[in-house]
């Protein structure tokens, strides 16, 4: 049972991260390799508030959300937008996000040292698990991460389908040139998508230490699973990213666990290999990811209804 709970928590967090990655990919065409470290940024925001002000990490979620969003906007406006305006190729943008990732990693490393000196506690490695509690018999992290996903989906639904700005956002995702012709300021929608992506990453980062130990380089490890989830999801659909998060999260946790039973516990270190194998199998079955399956389903449906 504990394994399934752990797998669900991990999948919830992966879904938050892959939805963020997919949103910025759809709106700006940037595959963001810094998404994992943006999450670790959120972990350090919560650690700081805990160590310096005694705020329980769960209570730091709103602060993490806002600061993560600001970081997202900063990465887009300072680094990526000038390159996009000069028509940089996708490879260049990808390398730029790798550079951002390394800069963030360095900054977080230096910050963790400073925080350690100020607080007088070790901050290079940390975990929030001892601070967790039970809600109705389940670990609070399971309830809170599941609530975070549900709230996100509900809010996204309201925003995207019930507000004028949300319709503009969807229009800009589908055809930015046409949206511009209609008078939509497509740039606002891009900035908003980076805010949202940064916020979701930071919230996932606040919750991640309840499941695993965090070091500044954790982002470089989880980015493999984030990309796997987004690609399995098709990189073009928010719901695809959600499904991708659960497919990769559950298979990575469960398969690794059962393999460790059969082969031995040393296999746990190689859990990311499982993500990549699932990614390859998923892409052989559905080359365009889950979003592609949806398009295929519609085509079949149209064919059968027209014949």
């Amino acid at each position: 049972m504990a394994v399934i709970e752990g797998a669900l928590v991990y999948s919830n967090l992966l879904a938050l991260l892959s939805i963020g990655l997919t949103i910025t990919y759809i709106t700006t065409g940037v595959p963001n390799f810094a998404q994992g470290t943006m999450a670790v940024f959120g972990s350090y925001v919560s650690l700081t508030l805990w160590l310096l002000f005694g705020v329980h990490p769960y209570h730091t979620i709103p602060v993490s959300f806002i600061l993560g969003g600001i970081l997202g906007i900063a990465i887009y406006t300072v680094v990526l937008r000038p390159m996009i305006q000069k028509e940089a190729m996708i490879v260049i943008l990808m390398i730029a996000t790798l550079a951002v990732d390394l800069i963030l990693l360095g900054a977080l490393g230096a910050y963790s040292e400073t925080l350690g000196v100020i607080s007088g506690k070790g901050t290079r490695k940390f975990i929030f698990t001892p601070m967790d509690f039970k809600i109705l018999g389940a670990d609070a992290i399971l309830v809170i991460s599941s609530l975070a996903i549900l709230m996100l989906l509900f809010t996204l639904f309201l925003l995207l389908y019930k507000t004028k700005f949300g319709i503009a956002l969807r229009a800009s995702m589908e055809n930015p040139a046409l949206a511009e012709i209609m008078g939509v300021n497509v740039e606002y929608t891009r900035i908003f998508s980076w805010f949202l992506s940064g916020s979701l990453a930071a919230v996932a980062g606040t919750l991640l230490p309840f499941r695993q130990e965090i070091v500044p380089a954790t982002g470089a490890i989880i980015i493999v699973s984030i990309f796997a989830a987004s690609i399995v999801g098709g990189l073009s659909s928010i719901y695809g990213a959600l499904a991708g998060g659960y497919i990769i999260g559950m298979s990575e946790s469960m398969v690794t666990f059962y393999l460790s039973k059969v082969i031995g516990p040393y296999i746990l270190v190689y859990s990311k290999v499982i993500s990549l194998i699932v990614l390859i199998i998923a892409l052989i079955v559905a080359p365009s990811g889950i979003a592609g399956l949806e398009i295929w389903r519609k085509r079949v449906w149209r064919k059968s209804s027209s014949s």
Partner: peptide, 20 residues
């Protein structure tokens, strides 16, 4: 081609046209 937003409903297409 590509003169309407295919993923939006007819009503949403009209709304976007009146965005300003």
């Amino acid at each position: 081609v590509d003169n309407v937003f295919t993923n939006l409903t007819v009503e949403e297409n009209l709304k976007i046209a009146g965005y300003t």
